[in-house]
Design a protein around this nucleic acid. Structure first.
Length: 323
DNA sequence: AATCTTTGCAACCGCACAGTT
DNA sequence: TAACTGTGCGGTTGCAAAGAT
């Protein structure tokens, strides 16, 4: 079936709206409402197509539109909703009074999307990125940090440069470790139908063989023997057991793992869930989760990471993991 | 100060769908 | 049931402002 274009009159104006046009549109809608967008422009004295008028009204002129920067709370809600709904901007907009789908879409594309990518999260799937480019960029970040650290030996270096390099090293480490834990967490999530925090289920159940790279990274992260970790991986049936095993191997590190486990609901990162969850129970749970949680205590988490990331295991060590 | 590049956002385009004839 | 119409939605574009060189 072929449709006729909505605006078949080539003389109709396009492009930015003038204040005069805005005034005409607002006046007309205030007086008569907006029953029929096709006939509205003519009766309002506007040389525009109805579609253009509707867009201008819904995205800009509507009196209940909230303008200005998005708050952190709004940003968090958008990320959570996007992880459940995907690019359903109009549905997401219904949860944010005063915000339009167009505004949210723009905010996502220009702001949140970039943030997630920088954090190593795929903005489409909300899962850790595994593409080579991302790993390369992290590798480069580490190299830069290393270069900066070597410069620190020069007495002429200033404090600001030192701080910058230290921060970039920490950032790279944190991102790597978060990626690792998110992979583990994703496995848990996938195998538990999305119920976080279930303790009596093997976090790696269903993963017949642990990916070699994951085990290697985990061993390096926890400072325990590769073979010992492999054995634990295959023999443990719960997160508690796994943590207990790690504890036997390395007391300090396991405490930090436990800490992460307890704190994971408060993580600053959005929950890593598939964009295509369809079960009603999951949606219900997500719905309850969307607006109810309190702001994360990021300082606690970063303290834990920093404790875990002993500086003795610095740049070259992490670079080895990447390479 | 001039030019180039990047960013943010308003607006457009085309498709899909529901309702009507 | 097919043809048509109006509306909503998501992707994309174009442009002005801001920032970098």
């Amino acid at each position: 079936m072929v449709r006729s274009p909505c605006c078949d009159d080539n003389n109709l104006k396009k492009g930015p709206w003038t204040p005069e046009e805005d005034e005409k549109l607002v006046d007309h809608i205030n007086k008569h409402g907006y029953g029929n967008w096709k006939t509205l422009p003519r009766s309002a004295g506007l040389n525009r197509c109805g579609k253009s008028c509707r867009l201008r009204w819904t995205n800009y002129l509507r009196p209940d539109i909230k303008r200005g920067k998005f708050s952190q709370e709004e940003e968090r809600i958008i990320i959570n909703l996007h992880s459940v709904l995907g690019n359903k901007w109009s549905k997401i907009a219904t949860h944010l009074p005063g915000r339009t789908d167009n505004e949210i879409k723009n905010f996502w594309n220009t702001n949140i999307r970039k943030k997630l990518l920088q954090m190593g999260i795929d903005p489409t799937t909300h899962k850790p990125r595994t593409d080579l480019n991302h790993l390369l960029s992290l590798s480069q970040l580490l190299s830069t940090a290393q270069f900066g650290n070597s410069l620190m030996n020069n007495p002429l270096d200033n404090i600001a440069l030192g701080r910058l390099q230290t921060d970039s090293t920490q950032l790279a480490k944190i991102q790597l470790l978060q990626n690792l834990l998110q992979v583990i967490n994703s496995s848990t999530l996938a195998n538990n139908n999305g119920f976080l925090g279930t303790q009596n289920v093997n976090p790696f159940e269903g993963v017949v063989m642990a990916p070699a790279s994951l085990i290697t990274s985990a061993c390096l992260t926890t400072n325990i023997d590769h073979q010992a970790f492999s054995n634990l991986w295959s023999s443990t049936t719960s997160m508690d057991e796994l943590l207990g095993g790690i504890e036997e191997q390395d007391q300090g590190v396991s405490n930090n793992f436990s800490n992460y486990n307890i704190q994971q609901d408060q993580n600053t990162l959005p929950p890593l869930v598939s964009a295509s969850h369809e079960t009603s129970s999951f949606r219900k749970m997500e719905g309850e989760h969307l607006t109810g949680s309190s702001p994360p205590d990021s300082s606690t988490i970063f303290e834990a990471w920093e404790k875990l990331m002993d500086d003795e295991t610095s740049g070259s060590y992490w670079k080895d993991i990447l390479e």
